[in-house]
Design a protein around this nucleic acid. Sequence first.
DNA 1: AAAATTAACTAAATCGATTTATTAAACTTT
DNA 2: AAAGTTTAATAAATCGATTTAGTTAATTTT
Lengths: 383, 383
Amino acid sequence: MQNSPDKSSGVYQENSYLFSNYAILAARLNRFRRTYNRYSQMSKTRPSLKDIAKELNISVTTVSFVLNGKGREKKISKEVIERIEKYIESINYKPNPIARSLRTGRSGILVFMVEDISNYFFAKLARIMEDLGYKHDYKMIFCSTENNDRRSKELIHLFRERQVDGFFLIPSSGIEKEVKNLIRQQVPVVLFDRYFPGLETNQVMIDNGDAAFSATEHLINQGYKSPAFITTDVKQTQMTERLEGYEKALKKYGLTPNILKIPFSEIHSAAGKELIATFLSNNPETDSMFFATNYLTQSGLEVIKYKFPGWLDSNGVLTFDDNDLFRINTPSITAIAQPLEEIGKHLMSMMMTLVNSSKPSEVAIQQQCLKAELIQRESTQRH
Amino acid sequence: MQNSPDKSSGVYQENSYLFSNYAILAARLNRFRRTYNRYSQMSKTRPSLKDIAKELNISVTTVSFVLNGKGREKKISKEVIERIEKYIESINYKPNPIARSLRTGRSGILVFMVEDISNYFFAKLARIMEDLGYKHDYKMIFCSTENNDRRSKELIHLFRERQVDGFFLIPSSGIEKEVKNLIRQQVPVVLFDRYFPGLETNQVMIDNGDAAFSATEHLINQGYKSPAFITTDVKQTQMTERLEGYEKALKKYGLTPNILKIPFSEIHSAAGKELIATFLSNNPETDSMFFATNYLTQSGLEVIKYKFPGWLDSNGVLTFDDNDLFRINTPSITAIAQPLEEIGKHLMSMMMTLVNSSKPSEVAIQQQCLKAELIQRESTQRH
DNA sequence: AAAATTAACTAAATCGATTTATTAAACTTT
DNA sequence: AAAGTTTAATAAATCGATTTAGTTAATTTT
């Protein structure tokens, strides 16, 4: 490429009587190159609509119409339709999704954005969504926000650019504006796990308050006099509602609440575990702990195991979010299980009504609030 | 759209002296519509290269060159480069990745295909890969194959069509041909977890045989006389190597192997657990069990907990793959931990050399075999 | 000073679809 | 039979980039 001027100028000198100037020669050379490239690419590339059209001696337009099932509508004759369909079938032609996206603005991709896909709850839900998505002919992209605003915003912009068709969002606290923007721009959005109290959005939640209330009541009914609530300092709905449920139950039975808030930044760290240990030492009257999320429970169990062995023999533990560990642990841990399958089903069905509408922001808003189930296990059995 | 003929024919009757025929009128109408559409779209769409070029009174080509940092190379003057860069910066222009993909054939997306993303091992690795990918400016797509050939093939074709730039693959047993095809077609592929013995591929593995041997030896050194090996009937390398490691150790110490193979289809089912229970009943001499994967261990622990309570007091358990459950469980479970971070690092670095090469199939094949670590815990402590 | 080269920039082709505008021929109306 | 409609199909614009093949003017070489 770089040396083509030299080459052609060499030729020019040899045949100067034939060519009036460099330009003509260069033009010839380039025409040849173009043809050459076309040929050499032919063998590599998958067939395009153009190839099919050429092969069948039919226009690209017609092939495209038939391909998209608009044959009848566009009054293409049955013979032509049949001929095209047969050929497309025979070479197993699949339209290039990128080209299609560029033209249509749709991509067939949905984004599932959560705090951390490696967390049991999110991973299981992701797996469910993956299958549901494929069932509706959508590909799924999963990503983790760490509940961090900057990261969430970046991810939204990133995928927005890629023309994804919709967002399943566990929003971090500071992205209300971004969510509003998406909706205004007619991008389908469904929130779950937590929401913005001031913003009417399509969402699938669970009744955190009710679940936390019943669970706390369960502890009290089991005879625990001093249940503590271990949570994070996150101020989002899923957390505040759980806290309120706990407080409401304590109030109902005239007990004194005892709450430990662990900074979100420390939930996976040793410092976080230290806080739980200190709390237990400083509050020896605590006869049961209600953990607000599964990762807190894991930290708690570790602390108990290594620093307060035997504590569980006479005291209780209860957790929000179930997982294999809690089922198998000894003692098995009483847990509030979110209805994963049901959440997934609702999420996907809301999304489908949105993506199938031409003005998603004008679709009547759908909000689901599902019940979580308390699974009673050994950890809250008073002997 | 459908009724435009009627409309225009109405106009035609009114002004018949002005227009010679329907066609001209239609043409006018359409020209108007086109202009109208252009205007009405302007406000909606993000700026394109064309818009920038128009704004700056510079050709699209020049803008594109500068955008891609080829300004110097293409001998664009410093003033123009600066002007373009400043403007691009000021409107925060980001090129449309779809259009770019269509032209370049690259997408900036890597696929991470595993058995089941909701499984702890895969989910944690996915999380690591997600961050590594973003660091290199790649988006990650995760998907689950269920170790099923048809599903794997479908997924490969699906993403191949979307021009993904590379595949991280845990291959199911019957897709050797597809993997070969990818490589032949210059698609970057890196295998992990398991491989095809007959196929030289870029891969990151762990030394399953060695790890299983050492782990078994550990059991024997702890005084267990009759360690059983609980595995699946999957015939892929990761499983056969683990089995061989176990057998080699038993042979070395002159012990009799005792192996339970659970059909892959039953690994998550009650029937699978039943098989373990039956095995334990029929082989009362078994004083320890070595589970070949984390999900088998979970089933095993559940069986022990509910059907053989107390069994763990005098017998041992050891597992391939670590997770939170095993650390926190009572007794905590001795586990072979794969070096997740290290696996991720190698996977990504191999992928980067592949995607940065113009002929990935000609890049010298890289194969890493990493050591797994045996984490000794309470479950194999002989008292 | 003619010829060749370089600097600086642009027109147009291209990627592979979708969709709008248009047309030629065959039918219907009036 | 002229005018209008319908049928069956197509040409060309478009989505938004990248990249090849030019072009013109200025500079350098011979």
